[in-house]
């Protein structure tokens, strides 16, 4: 096992990891605000909106992400009439799937965060004259995010690993290149390398969230 060989298999995997990282950032950046929006809908006094949000969360959490990805990539184009307009680039389709799925999880996490906030906080804000927007942005959201942080951290790490599902919709990413190398060279080494790359990514993420939790300890 030469160093040359290691470098030769690692380079395409790192290129594949770019897809992984790109998907991770797109999914996290869009699904967190979307998740929060769904939380607000679920808590809305409008019964229709609330029912929609709860159904959304139920369906997206209650079915496998893999099924959702296959559905979007290969299922939607088969729909009569509208199907031909729903053919998306595989990577784009995968992004849509990840965003919709993770938004449902984040919505539940944030809902828990909101429940943890004492009603005295709303009352104090009201008596001090804050309007609804000021109360939400200055008082409630910062506390909600703080409460939700450990769970958000956990979800983010799951997301890194779930990106491997791109493999199933044939978007070349980290795992795809590892598998290719294993088949071609008949060696287990590429799987180790892939594992180490995933571990490095989750390590960075873990350290980032540790730092964030420490910074927002409010003590």
């Amino acid at each position: 096992m030469s160093l040359d060989y290691l470098i030769r298999i690692t380079i395409p995997m790192l290129q594949g990891a770019q897809m992984t990282v790109l998907l991770f950032f797109i999914a996290i950046i869009v699904s967190i605000p979307l998740g929060f929006l769904i939380t607000l809908m679920a808590k809305s006094s409008n019964k229709g909106l609330a029912a929609f949000a709860h159904t959304y969360i139920y369906v997206l959490r209650g079915t496998p992400l893999l099924l959702q990805l296959l559905f979007i990539c290969f299922g939607l184009p088969l729909l009569p009439v509208v199907g031909e307009y729903l053919v998306m680039d595989r990577f784009v389709a995968a992004c849509v799937g990840f965003i919709l799925n993770y938004a449902a999880y984040f919505a539940e996490i944030f809902r828990g965060g909101l429940l943890a906030i004492d009603k005295g906080q709303y009352e104090a804000a009201q008596v001090l004259g804050f309007n609804k927007w000021q109360t939400t942005t200055k008082i409630i959201l910062p506390q909600m995010f703080r409460v939700a942080l450990p769970a958000v951290s956990n979800e983010s790490i799951s997301l890194v690993k779930d990106t491997a599902l791109l493999y199933a919709v044939a978007v070349p990413e980290l795992l795809h290149f590892a598998q290719t190398a294993v088949n071609r060279d008949f060696t287990i080494m590429p799987f180790f390398v892939a594992g180490i790359i995933y571990l490095l990514m989750t390590l960075l993420l873990t350290l980032f969230f540790k730092w964030l939790e420490k910074r927002t300890k409010f003590e």
């Binding site: 004492d118 104090a124 008596v127 004259g129």
Partner: peptide, 30 residues
């Protein structure tokens, strides 16, 4: 109601703000 101030049994300070920020937020943004 802005003519009235209220002190609660359970204080209801904003835990994510320092003492000084607790005092200064409302005069600033309200």
């Amino acid at each position: 109601t802005s003519k009235m101030g209220m002190v609660f049994q359970h204080f209801n300070l904003f835990p994510h703000l320092t003492v000084k920020e607790n005092l200064e937020l409302a005069p600033k943004i309200v």
